[in-house]
Design a protein around this nucleic acid. Structure first.
Lengths: 134, 134
DNA sequence: GTTGCTGCAAAAAGTTTGCAGGACG
DNA sequence: CGTCCTGCAAACTTTTTGCAGCAAC
């Protein structure tokens, strides 16, 4: 484990992830962190994210039809809801218990991820059709 | 909905997906389908996949740390297990019931996806460490 | 002062698109 | 025989890497 230096770039990126109200794309992270460090480059964002992920401080969230997103681990265990109409990715709290029972004999469950899909409270009252090609 | 023609390429790709024992990457699909249609190009694979997805005949499976994979819809409802050691993506049958209870008021649940992570039966008896960076 | 970190730009990987010719119906 | 589909190659998007200079410690 090499020592990591404390730099403005790293602090800005970490702060953005702490403040985030939900998963952020790499582009989001870059733009928000650039408010603090204007010359921040995309390569640094990727490098810091890879490091934070290695340190288990962030996890990536990959949902079909969405750019890869990142989220700080310190936030309580939760899952995601993807609205098929407005495409927003929501955090949802809580979890389900009997996941381990799905596994065949011999498999060890260490972690899991649940993505729910449908219409969010804002979109459900409107037409049930997607806005564009899907 | 425009009419779709019956071509060897499309038949080969569909057959590969039908035969698959689990999710396949675009590269996997290309290689397997080329056994039947050697001159098949990657662009055709992408085009056919996009079409099949539009027709709800296949779904994409996106798991962090894995290339995007595709899977025929006709297979019974199931979820996935990703072994952190050998990186294999397994299908697991069954499902859990109380997912809808996770949602805030007003959200409509239409679909869901569960990814379990850990060690598969083959890797669990071995060291609990990952083979390489991860 | 040493060494790791950063920004830039180029490279690599993954996906989409334009086009001319061929195959399906 | 018209039209859609295909393969090829180029364009695009996303992510990684090389390098010289700067900053952290």
């Amino acid at each position: 484990m090499p020592k990591t230096r404390d730099t403005p770039q790293r602090r800005a990126i970490a702060a953005v992830l702490e403040r985030a109200e939900g998963p952020l794309s790499v582009h989001d992270i870059l733009q928000r962190a650039q408010r603090e460090v204007p010359r921040l480059g995309i390569a640094t964002v990727y490098r810091v994210l890879a490091e934070l992920r290695r340190a288990r401080a962030v996890v990536s969230v990959e949902v079909a039809g969405h750019p890869v997103c990142y989220e700080a681990t310190r936030r309580a265990h939760h899952h995601h809801f993807h609205c098929r109409r407005c495409r927003t990715l929501y955090d949802v709290g809580g979890c389900v218990a009997e996941l381990a029972s799905l596994l065949p004999r011999g498999f060890q469950l260490e972690d899991h991820e649940i993505v729910l899909r449908g219409l969010c409270a804002r979109c459900a009252p409107l037409s049930p059709a997607a806005p564009s090609g899907g």
